[in-house]
Design a protein around this nucleic acid. Structure first.
Length: 234
DNA sequence: GCGACAG
DNA sequence: ATCTTGTCGC
């Protein structure tokens, strides 16, 4: 898609953890922080679901599309896969991206922007799962995370919906803490790939609809859970 | 060395 | 991420 097969293989299935860190730095280098988005007639959310305390069991991935601007949910593309290893903070992409890439390939039509559950550049090596997936697919992605992996909020975050405060790591703005709903914890929005930070925040706000998480995330979460519950032993 | 740590 | 029940508020 965006790289030669050998490099792509290392970006998706690194041989060891040390190779994974190298791959993440390469992906971060390939990541584009400026807007490069086509006509938006469809957007989508990406999420995975798994059994409680079974970090090595099967993961169920879903990509849930939504027509734009009418916001009509379209059939989700799903797949069940066995992750290569248990969850390790900082390496989420290697665990979930293979299944999400497979789900993406099952979509009859490709969305213009993909909203991913997790961070974009707000990662120690600037390679959260949103960036990881975006570069692999060469698709515009936005990271929507519910908690911080690294960095700290600069200043005070207002209480009104729409209020923002930068998330800074090593003197670099890596994401925005955004209040999407009154009296709710903030959400951390970041560039995944080919979407600027301002554009990412604007899109999440217009998809929030008075809830903490954007509609795309909610639909993907529901679709992934539905697959898990319909799965043997789910 | 110790604590922190997306999903 | 995940389980489960209840409770509070618009």
């Amino acid at each position: 898609m965006s790289a030669d097969p050998a490099r792509r293989q290392r970006w998706l299935h690194p041989a060891a953890l040390a190779d994974a860190a190298v791959a993440q730095r390469e992906i971060a280098e390939a990541c584009e922080v400026r807007d490069r988005i086509g006509p938006v007639r469809m957007v989508a959310g990406a999420d995975t679901s798994m059994k409680w305390r079974d970090s090595r069991g099967p993961i169920h991935a879903a990509i849930a599309p939504l027509s734009w601007p009418d916001r009509t949910p379209l059939p989700a593309a799903t797949i069940t896969d066995i992750p290569p290893f248990a969850y390790v903070p900082g390496y989420l992409g290697f665990r979930e991206a293979p299944a999400l890439v497979a789900a993406w390939e099952r979509l009859p039509e490709k969305p213009a922007i993909l909203f991913v559950d997790g961070h974009g550049r707000a990662h120690p090596r600037r390679c959260g799962i949103a960036t990881h997936l975006g570069v692999l697919l060469d698709v515009p992605t936005v990271g929507v995370a519910k908690s911080i992996l690294c960095g700290r909020i600069e200043g005070e975050l207002g209480a009104e919906p729409g209020a923002t405060a930068p998330l800074i790591d090593c003197d670099e703005v890596v994401a925005m803490a955004v209040r999407t709903r009154v009296r709710s914890l903030p959400v951390y929005i970041g560039t995944g790939h080919r979407v600027s930070l301002d554009t990412a925040v604007a899109w999440v706000l217009r998809l929030s609809e008075g809830r903490r998480l954007p509609l795309t995330t909610r639909l993907a979460h529901d679709a992934a859970n539905a697959v898990r519950r319909g799965h043997a032993g789910g």
